[in-house]
């Protein structure tokens, strides 16, 4: 038993160690450039269709990229900067709907569906694996045969 599991245990330990180092190292940097780089991707270019500040070359997008760095150097937090742009351009500058209300729907709907689907799948698998393998009743066999033939 232990012999069989030994290589897997060793692998698990190795992976866990590497993941700890990786997570610790991948903490987002707090430098102005790193913060601005992240924020640029979170905000829409207000004069473009479907482009973020990071992607756009429009003069307003350049001005905003410059402006957000100045604001960061002046000590404003990311939230304050986003709030300032929302006041100017409306909520649509945020590419990630993140406040309550209807925005919850965007996040909640797929997550609820995935969790519910996953739970249903697990429940079905557990139910199936608990009941012993059935031997099909003759009418089941007949149903299968009919269905296979494509006959009513």
């Amino acid at each position: 038993m232990t012999r069989r599991w030994a290589p897997w245990l060793a692998l698990a330990v190795l992976v866990a160690g590497a993941v700890v180092v990786l997570v610790a190292r991948s903490q987002p940097s707090g430098s102005v450039e790193a913060r601005a780089g992240r924020l640029e991707r979170e905000l829409a270019c207000p004069v473009c269709t479907g482009e973020s500040l990071a992607e756009s070359n429009a003069p307003e997008a350049r001005a905003m990229r410059e402006d957000m760095r100045e604001r960061m150097h002046a000590g404003q937090s990311d939230d304050e900067i986003v709030a300032a742009y929302v006041r100017l351009y409306g909520e649509r500058v945020k590419l990630r709907p993140d406040d309550g209300g209807v925005a919850l729907l965007a996040w909640g709907l797929p997550v609820v569906a995935l969790v519910a689907g996953g739970a249903a799948l697990v429940a079905a698998l557990v139910r199936w694996s608990r009941t012993p393998r059935l031997h099909a009743a003759p009418e089941d066999e007949a149903l299968v045969a009919r269905a296979r033939e494509g006959r009513p």
Binding site: S52, R92, K94, R96, A106, L109
Partner: peptide, 29 residues
């Protein structure tokens, strides 16, 4: 689930406008 994510994100701006009369965007993040 992936398809539902993409569908939700794509039509969400319409949904937000219809339900709440708000103009929201959904993008890469």
């Amino acid at each position: 689930g992936f398809a539902l994510v993409v569908l939700t994100g794509t039509v969400f701006p319409l949904l937000a406008e219809a339900l709440d009369d708000r103009q929201l965007s959904v993008g890469e993040p």
